[in-house]
Simulated assay, not measured.
Amino acid sequence: MALDSSEQPGPPITKFESMLRTDDVYFFDAEDFEEIIHHYLNHGKVSLAKKAIKMGLQQHPNSLDIRLLDVEVMVFENEFEDAERVLDELQLLEPNNEEIFVQRANIQSKQDNHLGAITLLHKALELTDEATDLYSLLGMEYLFIDDYTMARKCFIHCLEADPEDYASLYNTIYCYEFLDEHDGAIRYLNTYLDTNPYCQIAWHQLGKQYYAVKMYPEALAAFDFAIISDDSFLGAYFEKGRVLEKLGRYEEAIENYNTTTELEDPTSHAYLRIGKCYEHLNRPEKARYYFYLTVHDDPLLDKGWLAITDHYLKKKDYQKAQEYIDKALSIDGENAIYWKRSGIIHKALNQVHEADFAFKQATELGNYEE
């Protein structure tokens, strides 16, 4: 299994790179070569990993672990026949090595045979006492075949072994969401938080689940705990702002959205939400200013163009509304909602032929309302 990609280069790696800069050939233990190869693979330096594998096999031709790393590179480069041939040889030497089955599963997965990969990973599970990484791989394979119940079980296994495996936490909640089991996700997260009370990610996910089932006071409390756990957690401030909007507390929502712009570079989504809040507060000039910022920051965000167009529609300033929807259409002429707005504006201006054309475009693109 791969090492942590955040690892710092150790003495073997430094020594290896020093050797590459000279004509000297140094001797390394097999374990040193494994460390060197893992380092390069984790940092995407496949050519250097291949150099280390070649030299490692020259110095340690019987090292099964280095040969397995060679297979890993073959699989990465889609050299499946060569990889299978080497695995056949290795399995004769060590038939109960779980990593052989993992690499075979990897091959099957890359060939879209996910059921075959699952069978092989279950075989690997029978051969190892360290199952956490295998459950993670299994979870991903079950996701590929849309078996979210089994995927969730696998990711929960990972969390039982390592509660700080946040990738598995996200994947677990993703499975609950896909199965539309928000109540189950809430129960799971509350149980998780009983033993991990300062996990800002879990509080954040819990808040999102409460938001999904419209339990806004509970969602607000969850996001507050996420912020208490990490007062620089941008996502928690943004989601808290959304909850405050739902509760009609627009000034407080704006404060939270502004906090996100202070923590990192402002985003179009934050600008848009601030503009919407000012709309609710009946401050149209401020709302329009933030809608301008939205489309300037991200011209591809359709909600921004629609917000500024609707702003002028409400004021019955149809010429301005048309100007902005035309700009939006010049960027994305395949957006049915843009054409629908264009039709509404032309109709208000009594431009019947233009309205008819716009509505026909909208229906051709899938919007049949008009």
Rank of each mutant, 00 (worst) to 15 (best):
E130D: 15
G116E: 03
V102G: 03
E98D: 13
D112G: 00
V102K: 12
R85P: 00
L121Q: 03
L87T: 03
N106Q: 14
L125F: 05
R85V: 11
E130N: 15
F101M: 10
T128V: 07
E84N: 11
E98K: 12
E126I: 02
N97M: 06
L93E: 15
S109L: 03
D88T: 12
E126N: 15
V86T: 14
G116T: 00
L92A: 11
A124M: 04
E94I: 10
N106F: 08
E84G: 02
D112I: 01
L92W: 06
Q111N: 08
E94T: 13
E98Q: 14
L127S: 09
A124D: 05
S109N: 09
L87V: 03
A124H: 02
E89Q: 12
D112K: 11
R104V: 04
E84P: 01
L127P: 11
L120Q: 09
E94C: 14
D112F: 08
A124V: 06
D129T: 15
L120T: 03
V86H: 02
E89R: 08
S109C: 05
P95H: 08
H114Q: 07
A131N: 14
E126D: 15
L87D: 04
E126F: 04
E130P: 03
I107H: 01
L125D: 06
H122A: 03
I118A: 03
Q108N: 12
A117W: 00
D112H: 10
Q91A: 09
N113W: 00
V102M: 11
R104T: 04
N97H: 13
L127W: 07
D129I: 12
A124F: 02
D88A: 10
T132S: 13
E98H: 15
K110E: 10
V102F: 11
V86N: 05
L125N: 06
L121A: 02
H114T: 04
E98Y: 15
N106L: 13
G116Y: 00
H122S: 05
P95K: 07
T119R: 13
T132N: 09
